[in-house]
Amino acid sequence: MDLFLQTLVNGILIGGILICLTIGFQLTFGVLHVIDFAVGGWTMLGGYTAYWLVTLAGIDPFISIFLVFALFLLIGRGLGPLIYHVRTSRYARPDLMALAFTFGIFLFMRGGALWLWSYNSRSVDSVLSGQFLSLGPVTIPLMRLSAFLLAMLFSLGLFILLYRSRFGMAVRALAQNHDHAGLMGVDVKRVSAWVYGIYTALTASAGVLIATIYSVNPSVGIRYTLFAFFVAVLAGLGSVGGVLVAGLALGLLEAYVATYIGARYSLLIVFGTLYLVLLVAPKGVLGRGI
């Protein structure tokens, strides 16, 4: 029973970070109609940025995460217009071209990271490493708890932005209909670019938290792209609210598989489940809408 409770807590804590990882991805799909293959790439780059910030400048990842957020907000804002351009171009299949384009970006990130930093895993140290909080039978690493809380803070911030600001209203209008939003005076191109920026910033921040809890190497990107896909598909592509449930579901699934079946099967079972969900309920288990 203790093991069961401990696994439950671990699953929820990781699930919170997966929410932060996927929520921006969903927003991008809802607004730009782009499936971004590079989502794991942004996660990885966020982790590496935190690694270099703590190694070279000694900035703790729980502080540098805000720097990472700002940095990737600008990078994403810069890249956004290109994505928008490809998605709205007059190719035969702009959706597939956009998919191929982000696939290229992802390949560039993964290959570039391999080239620059080799296959080695790097761990990101924090002052919170190795500290624990005991709650009855359950032991909670302080780092995971803080990471969870930060991830929730970022996700909550996105919801406040979406539902309590003029910019958020413009984003929601875009998600409903590009043409109508444009006619109502929304600068479609600019808002889309900022949405892409917010997405990369959120995903890179989640990457900092993941790198702090585990470690980071160039091939983690593929894993987290698939995790993001999993959560997104379970929630229904484009559904931001559904991510809250689906992220926790994946966190719990992975934790229980790792505890009771064996860690080396966890990826296999996660991918198998994703595949089954796609077949049984391709529109998502939880409905859609922003």
């Binding site: 290109l82 351009h85 390949l107 570039g112 080239w115």
Partner: peptide, 20 residues
Amino acid sequence: TVIYLPILGVIIALVVLFLP
């Protein structure tokens, strides 16, 4: 062939942008 991967990535992006 490590440098080959980022080159592939750049090629995809350029082809999509300029030579669909």
